[in-house]
Amino acid sequence: MTDATNELAALSFEDALKQLETIVRELEQGNVPLERSIEMYERGDALRKHCDTLLKSAEAKVEKIQLGQSGEAKGTGPLDPQ
């Protein structure tokens, strides 16, 4: 993995989302040179994919929670590493 990939993988959902929001805000202002805009767009796309992966993982965990008769969570089943 590259350093950028490792750095991205280490980001929490919240941190990645904050970075993505900053990129969107800066690009929407239109004050960024073209080359920098392209770099920012590529970073934003990578952040979006990272956030999507983290969300899908969280959704899978929630779906695995089994409720007991009393309505309390009994635990989670094993997750498929996809």
Rank of each mutant, 00 (worst) to 15 (best):
47 L>I: 01
24 V>R: 05
20 L>A: 12
34 L>G: 03
75 G>C: 04
30 G>N: 11
78 P>N: 15
30 G>V: 09
7 E>N: 14
70 S>C: 11
17 L>C: 02
65 I>E: 13
28 E>P: 00
45 D>E: 03
4 A>F: 13
77 G>V: 14
7 E>D: 12
41 Y>S: 09
58 A>I: 09
9 A>T: 02
81 P>F: 03
80 D>W: 04
4 A>K: 14
16 A>P: 03
79 L>P: 06
48 R>V: 04
33 P>S: 04
17 L>K: 00
69 Q>W: 01
80 D>V: 10
68 G>N: 01
73 A>I: 06
69 Q>P: 02
2 T>M: 03
20 L>M: 08
66 Q>C: 02
70 S>R: 08
1 M>K: 02
43 R>Y: 02
10 A>K: 04
13 F>R: 12
17 L>E: 03
69 Q>M: 07
27 L>R: 00
22 T>M: 01
29 Q>Y: 13
27 L>F: 03
15 D>G: 10
72 E>S: 12
82 Q>G: 11
56 K>H: 14
77 G>K: 15
18 K>Y: 03
34 L>S: 11
44 G>T: 10
27 L>C: 08
12 S>W: 11
14 E>G: 06
63 E>M: 11
64 K>T: 15
32 V>L: 01
57 S>D: 08
44 G>D: 01
42 E>C: 11
15 D>Y: 10
61 K>T: 01
36 R>M: 08
27 L>Q: 02
33 P>K: 02
40 M>R: 08
40 M>V: 03
50 H>A: 11
14 E>Y: 09
54 L>C: 10
16 A>S: 06
52 D>W: 02
22 T>Y: 00
70 S>L: 07
59 E>Y: 08
71 G>A: 12
44 G>L: 03
81 P>D: 08
58 A>W: 07
4 A>H: 00
18 K>C: 09
27 L>I: 05
57 S>V: 01
21 E>N: 08
29 Q>W: 06
33 P>H: 14
42 E>L: 15
72 E>D: 05
50 H>G: 01
80 D>F: 07
69 Q>I: 06
39 E>N: 09
36 R>G: 01
48 R>E: 10
4 A>I: 05
51 C>A: 09
41 Y>P: 00
53 T>K: 12
40 M>E: 08
21 E>L: 01
46 A>H: 13
27 L>N: 03
62 V>Y: 04
63 E>S: 14
73 A>L: 07
68 G>I: 06
34 L>H: 08
72 E>F: 07
47 L>C: 05
9 A>C: 01
19 Q>Y: 04
5 T>Q: 08
72 E>H: 15
43 R>K: 14
12 S>Q: 02
14 E>R: 12
55 L>R: 10
29 Q>H: 09
32 V>H: 00
24 V>S: 12
78 P>V: 15
27 L>V: 00
79 L>G: 10
73 A>S: 12
77 G>A: 15
14 E>N: 14
19 Q>F: 01
6 N>H: 06
36 R>C: 02
67 L>N: 05
2 T>H: 07
52 D>R: 09
14 E>W: 12
63 E>V: 11
24 V>E: 15
67 L>H: 02
11 L>G: 06
19 Q>L: 13
15 D>T: 04
18 K>D: 04
29 Q>V: 10
9 A>E: 11
60 A>P: 04
31 N>D: 14
70 S>H: 11
